[in-house]
Protein backbone atom coordinates (compact mmCIF):
# COMPACT_ATOMS: atom_id res chain seq x y z
CA UNK A 1 0.00 0.00 0.00
CA UNK A 2 1.43 3.37 -0.89
CA UNK A 3 1.82 6.23 1.54
CA UNK A 4 -1.17 8.30 0.47
CA UNK A 5 -3.54 5.38 0.72
CA UNK A 6 -2.19 4.35 4.09
CA UNK A 7 -2.78 7.87 5.30
CA UNK A 8 -6.31 7.90 3.96
CA UNK A 9 -7.02 4.52 5.55
CA UNK A 10 -5.79 5.84 8.90
CA UNK A 11 -7.97 8.92 8.61
CA UNK A 12 -11.09 6.92 7.80
CA UNK A 13 -10.44 4.36 10.54
CA UNK A 14 -9.72 7.21 12.95
CA UNK A 15 -13.00 8.92 12.12
CA UNK A 16 -14.92 5.66 12.59
CA UNK A 17 -13.15 4.85 15.85
CA UNK A 18 -13.67 8.37 17.21
CA UNK A 19 -17.30 8.43 16.29
CA UNK A 20 -17.76 4.92 17.64
CA UNK A 21 -16.35 5.94 21.01
CA UNK A 22 -18.51 9.07 21.09
CA UNK A 23 -21.63 7.03 20.31
CA UNK A 24 -20.71 4.42 22.92
CA UNK A 25 -20.26 7.14 25.57
CA UNK A 26 -23.52 8.81 24.65
CA UNK A 27 -25.42 5.53 24.74
CA UNK A 28 -23.94 4.61 28.13
CA UNK A 29 -24.89 8.01 29.52
CA UNK A 30 -28.40 7.65 28.14
CA UNK A 31 -28.76 4.03 29.26
CA UNK A 32 -31.75 4.88 31.48
CA UNK A 33 -33.62 6.54 28.65
CA UNK A 34 -32.89 3.83 26.11
CA UNK A 35 -34.07 1.05 28.37
CA UNK A 36 -37.71 0.70 27.50
CA UNK A 37 -38.84 -0.15 31.01
CA UNK A 38 -37.88 -0.47 34.65
CA UNK A 39 -37.46 -3.99 35.98
CA UNK A 40 -39.14 -5.16 39.21
CA UNK A 41 -35.71 -5.14 40.84
CA UNK A 42 -35.31 -1.45 40.06
CA UNK A 43 -38.81 -0.71 41.39
CA UNK A 44 -38.28 -2.57 44.65
CA UNK A 45 -34.81 -1.19 45.25
CA UNK A 46 -36.14 2.33 44.94
CA UNK A 47 -34.29 3.22 41.75
CA UNK A 48 -37.52 4.04 39.91
CA UNK A 49 -39.18 7.28 41.06
CA UNK A 50 -42.61 6.86 42.68
CA UNK A 51 -45.43 8.96 41.23
CA UNK A 52 -43.91 9.29 37.79
CA UNK A 53 -45.12 8.00 34.44
CA UNK A 54 -43.00 5.13 33.23
CA UNK A 55 -42.93 1.69 31.72
CA UNK A 56 -42.32 -1.43 33.75
CA UNK A 57 -41.67 -4.94 32.55
CA UNK A 58 -41.48 -8.42 34.00
CA UNK A 59 -42.90 -11.91 34.00
CA UNK A 60 -46.48 -12.35 35.15
CA UNK A 61 -46.39 -14.38 38.37
CA UNK A 62 -48.33 -17.67 38.19
CA UNK A 63 -51.75 -17.63 39.87
CA UNK A 64 -51.49 -13.94 40.63
CA UNK A 65 -54.02 -12.73 38.05
CA UNK A 66 -57.24 -11.50 39.66
CA UNK A 67 -60.15 -10.32 37.58
CA UNK A 68 -63.11 -8.37 38.84
CA UNK A 69 -66.17 -10.08 37.29
CA UNK A 70 -68.18 -6.82 37.28
CA UNK A 71 -65.70 -4.44 35.72
CA UNK A 72 -62.83 -5.11 33.37
CA UNK A 73 -60.44 -4.46 36.20
CA UNK A 74 -57.56 -6.88 36.47
CA UNK A 75 -54.52 -7.05 38.67
CA UNK A 76 -51.49 -9.27 38.59
CA UNK A 77 -47.99 -9.41 40.00
CA UNK A 78 -44.88 -9.19 37.88
CA UNK A 79 -41.40 -10.30 38.80
CA UNK A 80 -37.88 -10.72 37.44
CA UNK A 81 -36.71 -13.05 40.15
CA UNK A 82 -35.24 -10.18 42.17
CA UNK A 83 -38.44 -8.44 43.21
CA UNK A 84 -42.16 -8.30 42.54
CA UNK A 85 -45.02 -5.82 42.64
CA UNK A 86 -48.66 -5.58 41.58
CA UNK A 87 -49.94 -4.07 38.35
CA UNK A 88 -53.51 -2.76 38.18
CA UNK A 89 -55.16 -2.38 34.83
CA UNK A 90 -58.58 -1.75 33.40
CA UNK A 91 -59.20 -2.89 29.85
CA UNK A 92 -58.67 -5.73 27.46
CA UNK A 93 -55.40 -7.57 27.76
CA UNK A 94 -53.49 -8.59 24.61
CA UNK A 95 -53.98 -12.12 23.23
CA UNK A 96 -50.56 -13.22 24.30
CA UNK A 97 -51.03 -12.15 27.90
CA UNK A 98 -50.45 -15.29 29.94
CA UNK A 99 -49.21 -16.21 33.36
CA UNK A 100 -45.53 -16.88 33.22
CA UNK A 101 -45.11 -14.67 30.12
CA UNK A 102 -43.37 -11.33 29.84
CA UNK A 103 -45.31 -8.08 29.68
CA UNK A 104 -44.50 -4.38 29.47
CA UNK A 105 -46.94 -1.99 31.13
CA UNK A 106 -47.19 1.75 30.57
CA UNK A 107 -48.57 3.86 33.41
CA UNK A 108 -47.77 5.42 36.78
CA UNK A 109 -45.91 3.99 39.74
CA UNK A 110 -48.30 4.63 42.64
CA UNK A 111 -46.13 3.12 45.35
CA UNK A 112 -43.27 0.64 45.59
CA UNK A 113 -45.82 -2.17 45.49
CA UNK A 114 -48.47 -0.83 43.12
CA UNK A 115 -48.40 0.24 39.50
CA UNK A 116 -51.44 1.67 37.74
CA UNK A 117 -51.21 0.69 34.06
CA UNK A 118 -52.83 2.53 31.18
CA UNK A 119 -51.62 0.07 28.57
CA UNK A 120 -50.37 -3.49 28.80
CA UNK A 121 -48.20 -4.98 26.03
CA UNK A 122 -47.26 -8.62 25.73
CA UNK A 123 -43.61 -9.37 25.25
CA UNK A 124 -42.91 -12.71 23.70
CA UNK A 125 -39.71 -14.68 23.77
CA UNK A 126 -37.65 -16.03 20.91
CA UNK A 127 -38.90 -19.60 21.27
CA UNK A 128 -41.14 -20.95 18.55
CA UNK A 129 -42.87 -24.31 18.72
CA UNK A 130 -45.66 -26.21 17.03
CA UNK A 131 -48.74 -26.54 19.28
CA UNK A 132 -48.66 -30.34 19.34
CA UNK A 133 -45.01 -30.33 20.36
CA UNK A 134 -45.74 -27.98 23.23
CA UNK A 135 -48.64 -30.16 24.44
CA UNK A 136 -46.49 -33.25 24.26
CA UNK A 137 -43.75 -31.53 26.24
CA UNK A 138 -46.21 -30.41 28.88
CA UNK A 139 -47.68 -33.88 29.27
CA UNK A 140 -44.26 -35.38 29.63
CA UNK A 141 -43.56 -32.84 32.34
CA UNK A 142 -40.58 -31.48 30.49
CA UNK A 143 -39.08 -28.57 32.38
CA UNK A 144 -38.73 -26.51 29.21
CA UNK A 145 -42.42 -26.71 28.40
CA UNK A 146 -43.53 -24.24 30.99
CA UNK A 147 -41.65 -20.99 30.79
CA UNK A 148 -42.46 -19.69 34.25
CA UNK A 149 -40.57 -22.42 36.01
CA UNK A 150 -37.56 -22.02 33.78
CA UNK A 151 -34.76 -19.56 33.55
CA UNK A 152 -35.39 -15.92 34.34
CA UNK A 153 -34.87 -14.82 30.76
CA UNK A 154 -36.63 -11.56 31.33
CA UNK A 155 -35.52 -7.98 31.77
CA UNK A 156 -32.10 -7.47 33.23
CA UNK A 157 -30.55 -10.88 32.95
CA UNK A 158 -27.88 -12.17 35.26
CA UNK A 159 -24.85 -10.86 33.46
CA UNK A 160 -26.18 -7.32 33.51
CA UNK A 161 -27.78 -6.97 36.93
CA UNK A 162 -24.51 -7.95 38.54
CA UNK A 163 -22.33 -5.25 37.07
CA UNK A 164 -24.66 -2.48 35.98
CA UNK A 165 -24.73 0.56 38.19
CA UNK A 166 -27.44 2.91 37.01
CA UNK A 167 -28.05 6.54 38.08
Amino acid sequence: MNKVRKQRLMVVLGVVAGLGIAVALALTALQDNINLFYTPEQIVSGEAPVGRKMRVGGLVVEDSVQRDPETLEVSFAITDGNGAFTVHYQGILPDLFREGQGIVANGTLVSRENFQAKEVLAKHDEEYMAPEVQEALEQAGHPGANKSGGKPEYGDSDEKSGSASYQ
Partner: peptide
Protein backbone atom coordinates in the same frame (compact mmCIF):
# COMPACT_ATOMS: atom_id res chain seq x y z
CA UNK B 1 -50.11 -5.29 16.63
CA UNK B 2 -51.58 -8.79 17.22
CA UNK B 3 -48.70 -10.10 19.33
CA UNK B 4 -47.47 -7.19 21.47
CA UNK B 5 -50.67 -5.15 21.28
CA UNK B 6 -49.01 -2.14 19.65
CA UNK B 7 -47.73 -1.14 16.22
CA UNK B 8 -44.71 0.69 17.52
CA UNK B 9 -42.75 1.49 20.65
CA UNK B 10 -39.59 3.57 20.83
CA UNK B 11 -37.41 0.79 22.11
CA UNK B 12 -33.76 0.28 21.24
Amino acid sequence: KPTWGTWWVWDA
